[in-house]
Write a protein that binds this DNA or RNA. Structure first.
Length: 208
DNA sequence: CCCTGATTCGC
DNA sequence: GCGAATCAGG
């Protein structure tokens, strides 16, 4: 199939939105990711900056060379300062004693409720989120268990087959993605799907 | 092994 | 111009 205006438009839009070449290829159909990448390059938008006005000025390519007063012909006064006197102040305190059998809620300290409620990913079709989000205790417990065995993959390691459930606070070091095998077609693993998608019957007559 | 984009080059 | 093959990398 040829690159019609419409298809090119879709390509441009998705690419600028950060979609990967393979994702775009699937969306368009009849093309491979190679084709998409090739087209992207031909269109000259390999740089995903749809609008980057404030481009950092390149250092002057010209060599000023004032030649005003050069005492030494080739004296290169390099003090050679030791750049790294530091010895890695990395002392992460990571020891978490997990021997607290459900003292209170089923939410461990590493998990923020916030991340449980808004697992939104760019470029991903947003699932219809029921305004009222009631997660069953069972599902929550399962999630907690899963998060202990999660692969803790980084952003780069996310694929369409990995669970994209964020764990921890993105603003801290303790942030990663679940990474377990995702359910077919779903962005999350089984446990996280169960808390992400409510069967729409999470609210029974709670009163009786 | 899964994936990503970049590049090459015959068509 | 196109994109498969290949490359380089996470």
């Amino acid at each position: 199939m040829a690159w019609t205006d419409e298809r090119v438009e879709t390509l441009k839009r998705m690419w600028s939105e950060g979609a990967s070449a393979s994702t775009i290829a699937k969306e368009l159909g009849s093309v491979t990711r190679n084709a998409v990448i090739g087209k992207v390059h031909r269109l000259g938008l390999s740089n995903r900056s749809a609008d980057e006005a404030p481009k950092a000025e390149e250092p002057a390519p010209e060599a000023p060379a004032p030649e005003t007063a050069t005492p030494e012909s080739d004296a290169a006064p390099e003090p050679e300062v030791a750049a790294e006197p530091e010895a890695e102040p990395e002392s992460e305190i990571e020891e978490e004693d997990e021997d607290e059998p459900r003292t209170m809620a089923a939410v461990p300290q590493g998990v923020s409720i916030t991340s449980l409620r808004k697992p939104l990913m760019a470029g991903q079709p947003l699932p219809p989120q029921p305004s009222a989000n009631e997660i069953s205790p069972e599902a929550l417990a399962k999630v907690n268990a899963v998060e202990k065995t999660a692969k803790k993959i980084s952003l780069m390691e996310l694929t369409e087959r990995t669970c994209k459930w964020p764990i921890g606070d993105p603003a801290t070091e303790k942030f990663w993605f679940c990474g377990l095998p995702s359910q077919a077609g779903k962005p999350y693993c089984e446990a996280h799907v169960s808390v992400a998608f409510q069967p729409m019957s999470s609210r029974r007559d709670r009163r009786r």
